[in-house]
Design a protein around this nucleic acid. Structure first.
Lengths: 232, 232
DNA sequence: CGTATGTTTGACGCGAATCAATTTTCGTGG
DNA sequence: CCACGAAAATTGATTCGCGTCAAACATACG
């Protein structure tokens, strides 16, 4: 907790520049991009599987997803990969308090992101509103991380995959149809499973008629309620 | 992310009263308790295994551990329990942004905590410093939650238990000796294992001479470095 | 087309869960 | 301090889910 890491306050070296606006922007992700702060926040494009930053890199900027999907992940010594989260349009990622990156960030699909100067924590020149926003942002991410931890702990492959599908069906525009941006490998590394198990579990759900899988990336969610029951 | 939950700003109903002081206090957990804000922040005692709050309860206050150990956890429909975190002296817990508790909190040992009024997010009357503290607090918790998620994902029982012991040997005062406040059951529910597996794994580490187990709650850490190697 | 990448399916083995029994520890009261 | 009962921990036998290894199949791309 804070008590144990008062240090972090000193680390984080950044400027508070575009933050207020970027956070406000985050609150209204679809508003037209015509403010002057947008000029200051450079647009960057990445091709699928390109690395945006690597674990251990010095933390300089954070990002907002304009289009495409990003994953943050960590690699273990033996090559195992663990995906921490996926980010899609409107999401902010890479807003870290540590000096160096705890995860690496990679493009899942071709994507466009906007980069912002990292916030300088100790800088009080920003209004209270900025820090309120930052706190809310952090707390929301915390809840997500906790949910992820709970999903990984003591849950069967069926429960994990079901939860994953429900999660993405929420994010989907089209009712009852999920277009997955990521491979089975990504799903597996996010859920702590193998690609084979993910595949088998999807087949299983298909046979139970809870979902349909016309193509590997197109998942038709036939019964969201039944899926939710699986991990109640 | 923030973009998806602008709502939370409105929820959180609280007063910012003792927060700044309590957060400042958190930064120096051992300082003498003689400020006036301490009078305002009531001391509460709980016996081992007592419930401090339950999942779903309305969020009214948050706590700081004065002595003893607290666990936050969630129960699944089938009775499975998952422990999110353990909190010890100086730690803050229950500082949530949601209206209702996402986890329940229970005393692992007899403990004393101090309660504070929850922060009112939208209240700008607090100084920037408070919100900076809050942000740092949230980000530090986030890092912990992420580490926990990574530990639960795709790691063997040996790796989990080793990491757990290293974690607690860091928190321990006595060099090379860890006094566990929690049962095998708590450890199991924290690591996503069963009590039998935890027990067997400890026996295994004992036989390898990396640890000694004079009594179930006393773990002598003989080779921290070797333990760390196990989950490198 | 042919190659590469991603996905599905099958056979098999291993690690952890489960079931079950025993032993140790600990709290309580005599 | 010891005795007792209850809770916790350990150990063993067995089962089962998921990982591993391997092969076949689909899809995209040059």
């Amino acid at each position: 907790m804070l008590a144990q890491n008062p240090v972090v306050m000193d680390h984080a070296a950044m400027t508070a520049a575009a933050v207020l606006s970027s956070m406000a922007m985050a609150a209204a992700p679809d508003r037209p991009a015509n403010d002057e702060e947008h000029e200051k926040a450079p647009l960057l494009s990445f091709k699928a599987n390109a690395e945006i930053y690597a674990e251990g890199d010095t933390t300089k900027v954070f990002y907002r997803v304009m289009s495409g999907i990003i994953r943050t992940c960590r690699f273990l010594a033996d090559g195992r990969r663990q995906i921490e989260a996926f980010y899609s349009a409107g999401d902010i990622f890479g807003l870290d308090i540590e000096e160096s990156r705890g995860f690496s960030a990679e493009a899942v699909t071709d994507c466009v992101v906007r980069s912002y100067q990292q916030i300088k924590i100790a800088d009080s020149s920003d209004g209270v509103a900025v820090h309120q926003q930052l706190f809310c942002y952090a707390m929301n991410r915390l809840v997500k991380a906790q949910e992820h931890a709970m999903l990984l702990s003591r849950r069967s492959a069926l429960e994990k995959v079901a939860a994953f599908l429900v999660e993405w069906s929420k994010r989907s525009k089209q009712q009852g149809m999920v277009t997955l941006a990521m491979t089975r490998n990504d799903i597996a590394d996010y859920l702590g499973l193998t690609i084979e198990t993910v595949s088998r579990t999807l087949t299983q759900l298909d046979k139970k008629n809870l979902i349909g899988v016309p193509t590997p990336r197109q998942i038709q969610v036939r019964d969201v309620h039944a899926l939710k029951e699986l991990y109640a």
